[in-house]
């Protein structure tokens, strides 16, 4: 396990080399979501597939999450973007990297793409969106509700029954994070990129949605806003696409990397159906 001090905080970072010890076909940075999430969501899902396919993978726990330090304040989006920028500089990953962000992790990825376009080869965002004023309003409402609910035993018991004990345990940690820090207040007060800044994101963007998710309605808006953005919809999924449809996300990611010049190697590449290996078609759901 590696710990790196970045921006005055101790970060838990995992840098995984290609499994075949060859030169990396690409570097992919995996950014996890808010509150109940950590790098573990990728470590056991996408990361093994990517290293088996010859990619270098960088994972880290975002501030306040997982094994990274939990400062009492400083949870504006720009702070999360500072962390990512600082991490890439520290590891001397100067060549453009692919950013893959789940939910809020994608919002942070969009943040770096507006700030350091030279650093970003492409964005694959799952159930995610760039920060806008509408995003701030939504985050404010969601975080306020989470802050009150996730410390209530009845709410946690309901989560345990509806989902699982494990989910309830994660929710309890999330409640503690919100109680101990100013995250719920800071995030809605983040600096929001201007529309012109977002329009200037020229790298290819693949936006992945659960077909049943309420975020689907923003797909057309995002495609209209960004110069090179496509959307794909995974059947039968809501917000938890990464965990609920891991295999689909694996294939989408490998196929997307291939389309952008990073050829997957090894068994992982062979697992792609031929039509996807040839880059002619997407594996899951509908693409537009």
């Amino acid at each position: 396990m590696a710990y790196l001090k970045l921006n005055g905080l101790r970060f838990h970072v995992q840098r995984l080399a290609p499994q075949d010890a060859g030169p990396p076909a690409a570097t992919v940075v995996l950014l996890h979501g808010l509150l109940t999430d950590s790098l573990a969501s990728y470590y056991f899902t996408l990361a093994p597939t990517l290293v088996a396919a010859g990619m270098e993978v960088l994972l880290y726990d975002q501030r306040g999450h997982g094994r990274t330090g939990q400062p009492p304040t400083g949870y504006q989006l720009e702070r999360f973007v500072d962390d990512l920028e600082c991490l890439l500089d520290r590891l001397e990953l100067t060549g453009p990297v692919h950013l893959l962000g789940n939910s809020f992790g994608g919002t942070a990825a969009f943040g770096l793409a507006t700030r350091r376009p030279d650093q970003v080869a492409g964005l694959l965002v799952i159930e995610s969106e760039p920060a806008t004023s509408a995003w701030s309003v939504k985050m404010d409402a969601n975080l306020r509700r989470a802050k009150t609910q996730l410390v209530r035993e009845e709410a946690l018991a309901w989560i345990a029954t509806r989902y699982s004990e494990h989910t309830a345990r994660l929710a309890r940690s999330a409640g503690r994070l919100l109680a101990a820090t100013s995250l719920a207040r800071d995030l809605p007060a983040s600096r929001i990129p201007t529309e012109a800044e977002l329009r200037a994101i020229r790298c290819p963007v693949l936006a992945v949605y659960g077909k049943e998710s309420d975020m689907v309605s923003q797909a057309a808006w995002l495609e209209g806003l960004l110069p090179d953005c496509r959307s794909t919809f995974v059947s039968g999924q809501e917000h938890s696409v990464l965990i609920g449809a891991t295999e689909a996300v694996r294939r989408l990611t490998l196929s997307w990397l291939r389309q952008h010049g990073s050829e997957p190697r090894g068994v992982a590449a062979e697992r792609l159906p031929t039509r996807i290996r040839d880059g002619r078609s997407e594996p899951e759901g509908s693409v537009r």
């Binding site: 573990a40 470590y43 056991f44 093994p48 088996a52 345990r169």
Partner: peptide, 29 residues
């Protein structure tokens, strides 16, 4: 009552003890 992030630590310890042939992430992937 281990959280998923604890399993990441366990995976590293297993690899440190028995080497590359014990790949917990691959096992549960």
């Amino acid at each position: 009552e281990l959280e998923s992030i604890d399993l990441v630590t366990l995976a590293e310890q297993l690899q440190a003890r028995w080497g590359e042939q014990v790949n917990f992430a691959e096992f549960i992937a």
